[in-house]
């Protein structure tokens, strides 16, 4: 735009943007740095250069059995996502390719369940979980995460499927494909990118869900959210170790997140912004 001073203005904007970005990113960066400090170092004033110890990572595992909540997080997020996809793919397929007058209402209603404040049903769910022996079980939490994310999964898939032109499926039908072949040869290859994006976003959401996981688990099924939250009451000085645990808790999802920027917008706005 500013044609005369293109390079100059680009440098100015670059500096400003980098400063802003680093300020925003700083808390994460500082936690990662702290995780490589010793405990005394961690509380010894501001420093960006750690002594480079891996001790914290080892201690977190040996003293607090970090691996267990991590495994739980992996199982819960992937399990609930796959379960949600199994429910949602047929539903979204039907809504996208055989819409009726009620399809839109059903979609809106599904969205509305997402707006129910979780806390409003905290007690009934807690009591039901207690009575069915689901408290602090992976199965219970998986069901919970599946249900709370199901509307988003249906919606995301729906917006992706809707972009597949119905005429292509009709062409396949004219070409002699039965429903099964239509799904295998035509629909699935065209839907894979959308399904993959949905999978990715939903794993992120499930991994970071921090209300039900904290409410419904204590030790056995507790994922990283509940594990980390249990550090909130300080037992001695433990920041370097906490940083190590935090770094491990956010690293995998941070990386997934970087890959899913575009889908994130689309998924969380229910397709309203693309």
């Amino acid at each position: 735009m500013a044609r005369k001073s293109t390079t100059q203005s680009k440098i100015v904007w670059t500096v400003i943007a980098w400063v802003v970005a680093l300020v925003i990113f700083f808390p994460i960066l500082y936690a990662v740095i702290t995780s490589f400090k010793t405990e005394p170092e961690a509380i010894d004033g501001f420093s960006l250069i750690p002594s480079g110890t891996f001790e914290n990572y080892i201690t977190v595992q040996t003293q607090r059995d970090y691996f267990k909540p991590f495994t739980n997080s992996v199982i819960l997020s992937i399990g609930s996502t796959i379960l949600a996809l199994i429910f949602a793919i047929p539903a979204a397929w039907a809504m996208a390719f055989a819409p009726t007058r009620r399809t839109k209402d059903i979609l809106m209603w599904m969205l509305s369940t997402k707006m129910m404040p979780a806390v409003a049903v905290l007690l009934p769910i807690y009591i039901l979980f207690r009575n069915f022996g689901l408290l602090d079980t992976r199965i219970g939490l998986t069901i919970m995460l599946t249900l709370i994310n199901l509307p988003i999964v249906v919606w995301m898939l729906y917006t992706y499927f809707r972009e597949i032109p119905g005429e292509i499926l009709e062409a396949a039908r004219m070409d002699g494909a039965n429903l099964w072949k239509e799904i295998v040869y035509v629909l699935t290859p065209m839907a894979v990118p959308g399904i993959a994006s949905t999978l990715l976003l939903n794993i992120i959401l499930a991994w970071n869900e921090a209300f039900w996981t904290i409410q419904l688990s204590t030790t056995n099924a507790a994922p990283l959210t509940a594990f980390i939250a249990s550090f909130s009451s300080p037992q001695g000085l433990f920041w370097a170790k906490l940083s190590a645990a935090s770094t491990m808790a956010i690293a995998p999802i941070l990386i997934l997140g970087w890959f899913s920027q575009k889908q994130l917008v689309r998924g969380l706005t229910f397709g309203a912004v693309k």
Binding site: P165, E167, A171, R173, G176, N178, Y185, V186, M190
Partner: peptide
Amino acid sequence: AAPAARGLAMVFQSYALYPHMSVRKNIAFP
């Protein structure tokens, strides 16, 4: 009868080609 059983072929306005298949595979599909 189902569409395929009628022995007709259709050319759609949007062409409805299978985007993930080569031209060869598109033509070979039926």
